[in-house]
Write a protein that binds this DNA or RNA. Structure first.
Lengths: 348, 348
DNA sequence: TTGAAAGCGCTACCAT
DNA sequence: ATGGTAGCGCTTTCAA
């Protein structure tokens, strides 16, 4: 049995081999194997059987050249290696991307850009060489320069949580409900002064989470506590903690924009002798594994990065399959609240 | 300026366009652009200038079809999404892989397999479709089934820390010196009973680290402390900690096979009220960011995953470039000891 | 429904 | 050193 793409004599099995053995023309064999109309069911079955028996696998480069499709999707990650290393979000997301792509015969081409100029170059190369059929734009920013770039390059794409003027199909997974649930949880515990450690301006995540933090408090008749603008990282959390330590009146609870940030915040406070949740309740956002390792365990809202990756690829391939129709955007459920020991009643 | 691979009228710039404008034959243009001999320096320069001016980028599928090369390397990760998520090693490694590949015009095709059967299928597909020119085999096991598989499929490959009978070029980064340095550090602190939390049998990492732990102790005239066999994970560290808690005579120091494992070990002990390093010193291996987040900070040995990725790709592409010559294996320096507060003098 | 043949855009060979 | 041309292995059009 030759299931490895080699025929008995070691030569690659070609479509012409399949056609010859099945007693049909090459064009018919092609149509039969690619589910194209114009072949009788009888012929199709026969061709399939021969192909199967021979272990035929079409040459990708030949397919690509003649069909002008790459059968691959691109994923350009813009991040330094160090940050990438510490960011566990990435693993589950990429797993979703890869599996959804593989399920439809596409490969994932991963690129890493460490600065803006390099990111631009990567997209240009992907477009110029036709290495991929489309790209995934993740962590969309509010006006996002990549959108114009990618569109100008003629690349197909799908974005995540992009604004309404984004020309690409979009997958959205709103973090608003998650933040609302966290804030409501803190209010229910008795907190009245709830601060927020936010991300850098420009990011959808930053604005959305900040807005919902504020509006949820307003809905409960509470004024927003102090706001610390920082970043999504561990270090940013530590800095915010330093700021918190310098406050005259300290909030009794803080909602952090990410788990990593929350962990930095917590550990810095603990180093300064602050007890959690005794003196302050801390909540994060994402649901990374590390949140279960710290003491106390981190209350958070767990998203579904894997399903996000799957949804983005599926949407991209769908839109590629029907270039005329405009595929509907996808809305993913937010995730779910995970209560751990880092949040508790205020000291009073 | 048309730097995006499109000429003025929106048509793709072809090699024939470059040749025509440069006033040479297509074959000469091809030779000029690909650094092949047989063109005068004058011609080469002229062709280059025209290509540059036109923003010419060769079609990858056409190149691939005619040259039988994919200009891509494959990376098959065998791991569940959850483990992948918690494993920060991956980020730096993949960054190295990607950057080295990109520097030589190759793309990285990332595949994720969640079980053995799927892993086999992925390699088969990569080979059958000629999607990549070669693959990176990471985390080589002692007899590693992938080696035979990949070789049988006719794929080029490079392995890491493989045994002497592995047919592929190999990059080695010995973890032995690191373990030795850690053990010596503990001995210097005054420890005489030093245990080890090891990984699963079959992995090179497991055996090597275990062996060096034992031999370094022997060299100092010490008997090996208790050995806990587990896994590379956080959870495995916790289990080992439980075992340690049940011991009659407890070692005063433990060397864990990975940082993640060490962190699990530490946190479980701390939950049980054990003080670190007062009652026990704990060391890890890898140098992940999380080791700086825990309290006390984790003493460890920091490898260079990024350079490992770079070296593997470079070696693969080198061996691909000269199929006749046999390229020499690469040996990477081990890394360096990182002392933090999780190790200290024994209680006594 | 089926088959023949013309591309797809390069590389590589063989003349010149 | 150059230029013509035959592939590479498919898809796709167009006749039959």
């Amino acid at each position: 049995m030759a299931t490895n793409g080699l025929s008995f004599d070691g030569r690659r099995v070609l479509l012409s081999d399949v056609a010859r053995l099945a007693g049909v023309a090459i064009s018919s064999a092609s149509a039969a194997l690619n589910d194209r109309p114009g072949v009788s069911e009888d012929t199709r079955a026969r061709v399939r059987a021969v192909a199967e028996g021979l272990g035929y696998v079409a040459s990708l480069s030949a397919k690509s050249l003649s069909s002008k499709r790459a059968f691959a999707v691109g994923l350009v990650i813009h991040r330094d290696a160090e940050v990438l290393e510490a960011d566990p979000f990435f693993g589950a997301y990429i797993a979703g991307v890869e599996r959804a792509a593989a399920a439809r015969g596409h490969a994932v081409v991963l690129q890493i850009a460490e600065d803006d100029a390099e990111e631009v170059r990567r997209y240009e190369e992907l477009a110029a060489t036709h290495r991929v059929d489309g790209v995934l734009i993740n962590e969309t920013m509010d006006p996002d320069p990549r959108i114009q770039l990618v569109q100008g390059l003629g690349l197909a794409a799908v974005s995540v949580n992009a604004g309404p003027d984004c020309p690409f199909p979009n997958v959205s997974q709103d973090s608003g409900p998650g933040v609302a649930e966290i804030v409501e949880h803190l209010i229910a515990l008795g907190h009245r002064d709830i601060g927020h450690v936010s991300g850098p301006p420009g990011y959808t995540h930053t604005h959305r989470r900040e807005d919902v933090w504020r509006s949820t408090l307003a809905l409960a008749g509470l004024r927003p506590g102090p706001l610390f603008r920082g970043h999504f990282t561990y270090e940013a959390g530590r800095h915010a903690a330093d700021a918190w330590l310098g406050l005259d009146t300290r909030p009794t609870a803080v909602v952090c924009v990410t788990d990593l940030c929350a962990i930095g915040f917590m550990l810095r406070l603990q180093e300064a002798g602050v007890t959690i949740p005794g003196e302050i309740s801390v909540a994060g956002f994402d649901g990374i594994a590390m949140g279960t390792y710290v003491q106390p365990g981190l209350t958070t809202f767990r998203g579904t990065p894997r399903r996000l990756g799957e949804a983005m690829v599926t949407l991209l391939l769908d839109s590629l399959d029907r270039p005329d129709e405009t595929v509907p955007d996808v809305v993913l459920p937010s995730g779910r609240l995970v209560l751990r020991a880092s949040t508790g009643p205020p000291a009073s």
